[in-house]
C-alpha cells in the first residue's frame, strides 16, 4: 500500500528531514510512526498525500509513484486517503453534518450519497446525537470523532493520522485510538504518527521508529520505547 525506497527530503534551507528512508506497509495494517518532533514524521505524511515530493528515492502509494502524479491524479490519490489532524481542522461555524458534507461535496459526492453516508459515519464514530451541533459546541474528544467521521466519509482505503491524540486527555486518547483500531479491523489501513506512549504500548501494533530523519527500528507488536 505504501512502499518507500531510499526516500530523502532536503528542504531549500538545507535541512534534511528524511534520509534514505525505506519501508513497506501492506493493505490492512495498523502502523504507529513514533519519534521526536523534527524526526521527519510530518514530512513523510505530507509526501504520502503529495503535498511534498521526495528529493530523491521513490515513494509509491497504492502502487503509484507519487512524484509522477499530476493534477487530477493527485485528487484521486487524496480521495483514497482519509486524513486526521491533531488540531482537527474543522470549520467552526458549521455543524458536524455540514463539515462532513463540505468534505464529501469537495471530493465529488452527490447530495444523495451525503444524506445516506453522513448518519452512517456518525454512528460509526459514536457522534450521532451531535449531528446538528455546531463544531464550537463540541468537546475535544467529540471534535476528533467528527474529524475521523470526515476522514472515513469517502470510504478511503487508508487513514493517516498526524498526532490525533495530541490535544486530548489520556482517557479520550485511548477512546480515539480504539476507534481507529475498529476502523482498521474493517479493512482500512491506518498509519498513526504519535508521541503518546500510552496508546502505543496499549495497542501493541507495528511501530516504525524515526530518529533525525532515519528509520532506526521497525517492530511488529512494538512498544513506544524500542526494544533493543
Amino acid at each position: 500500500m505504501i512502499e518507500a525506497v531510499n526516500v530523502t527530503k532536503k528542504y531549500n534551507d538545507g535541512n534534511q528531514a528524511l534520509k534514505k528512508v525505506s519501508f513497506l506497509i501492506d493493505r490492512g495494517e495498523f502502523v504507529f510512526l513514533v519519534g521526536q518532533s523534527g524526526a521527519g514524521k510530518s514530512t513523510l505524511f505530507k509526501m504520502i498525500i503529495k503535498e511534498l515530493v521526495p528529493t530523491s528515492g521513490t515513494l509509491k502509494v497504492f502502487g503509484r509513484d507519487v512524484s509522477r502524479l499530476r493534477g487530477k491524479e493527485v485528487s484521486v490519490l487524496r480521495r483514497n486517503i482519509g486524513i486526521v489532524f491533531q488540531d482537527f481542522r474543522l470549520l467552526e461555524e458549521k455543524t458536524v453534518y455540514d463539515n462532513i458534507a463540505f468534505a464529501m461535496r469537495a471530493s465529488g459526492a452527490s447530495p444523495r450519497e451525503m444524506r445516506k453516508r453522513i448518519p452512517q459515519v456518525l454512528e460509526q464514530v459514536g457522534l450521532k446525537k451531535k449531528v446538528y451541533s455546531r463544531v464550537n459546541e463540541l468537546s475535544g474528544g467529540e471534535l476528533q470523532r467528527a474529524g475521523i467521521a470526515r476522514a472515513i466519509s469517502n470510504r478511503p482505503a487508508m487513514i493517516v493520522a498526524d498526532e490525533p491524540t495530541g490535544n486530548l486527555d489520556p482517557q479520550t486518547s485511548m477512546d480515539i485510538i480504539k476507534l481507529l483500531r475498529n476502523i482498521n479491523v474493517k479493512g482500512t489501513t491506518v498509519l498513526v504518527a504519535t508521541h503518546d506512549q500510552q496508546i502505543v504500548d496499549e495497542l501493541k501494533k507495528r511501530v516504525i521508529y524515526l530518529e533525525e530523519g532515519r528509520i532506526v527500528g521497525d517492530q511488529e507488536k512494538g512498544a513506544y520505547v524500542r526494544a533493543l
Partner: peptide
C-alpha cells in the same frame, strides 16, 4: 484559507476550488 486547505486534503480538484 482553512476551507481551501480542507478541500485540498479531501481531494477536491483544482477547478472545484
Amino acid at each position: 484559507k482553512r476551507e481551501i486547505t480542507i478541500m485540498k486534503y479531501v481531494g477536491a480538484t483544482n477547478w472545484f476550488i
